[in-house]
């Protein structure tokens, strides 16, 4: 089913999304990938505050190319989510509502998605030029020294994603190939 969803993601919208839904996201989300996740995780372990309030937010696993002059951002497709699996359950338990990336997640992440009524979306890997067109505003909000890995706040319009893991724990990757396997 095609859905248009506003960000930040409401609890009701998160619960209503089903694995396989084709979704256009509009609103604000944050980028973070390996280095930013490690830093957030270390901060939590040291009892410090996170640099952004992730409650109710969606994180996009993205490290863009630099913006050309006059552009908002460079190429901006998803990176492989599994490298964030170590950190994701903790962030979900702190209120993170959604993740956009690509590729498989561990059972621990799936359990945390279910426990928190959250959603895991996949964007099309390797379509960074196309996806950059959906990004209307980008600003670094934390960890500027990490360059491409800094945390950015993005304003997106109709960012196309697919629900892979829904709040009931249904995992599209686990079943998608069955229909086409020979």
């Amino acid at each position: 089913m095609d859905r248009h969803i506003s960000l930040p993601l409401s609890d009701a919208d998160a619960l209503s999304l089903k694995a396989g839904d084709y979704v256009y996201l509009t609103g604000e989300l944050y980028t973070a990938r390996d280095a930013a996740h490690k830093r957030m995780y270390d901060a939590l372990n040291e009892g410090k505050e996170l640099p952004v309030d992730i409650k109710g937010q969606v994180v996009y696993y993205l490290g863009p190319t630099p913006a050309r002059p006059g552009h908002v951002i460079g190429s901006a497709g998803p990176t492989t989510s599994s490298r964030m699996d170590k950190y994701a359950p903790r962030l979900l338990d702190l209120g993170l509502k959604g993740m956009v990336g690509k590729g498989k997640r561990t059972q621990e992440v799936i359990d945390a998605v279910v426990r928190n009524g959250a959603v895991y979306f996949a964007a099309v890997g390797g379509a960074g030029a196309l996806l950059s067109k959906c990004i209307k505003k980008a600003e670094v909000v934390a960890y500027d020294d990490l360059g491409t890995e800094a945390i950015r706040r993005l304003q997106v319009e109709n960012l196309p994603v697919i629900v892979v893991i829904d709040s009931a724990g249904t995992n599209l990757y686990a079943t998608a190939a069955d229909k086409w396997r020979k």
Partner: peptide, 17 residues
């Protein structure tokens, strides 16, 4: 479509260059 945009607008095909 992504390949066309990349070539015409000089936006890298993938952000992982």
């Amino acid at each position: 479509e992504n390949m066309d945009i990349a070539r015409e607008e000089m936006i890298p095909i993938c952000q992982d260059t």
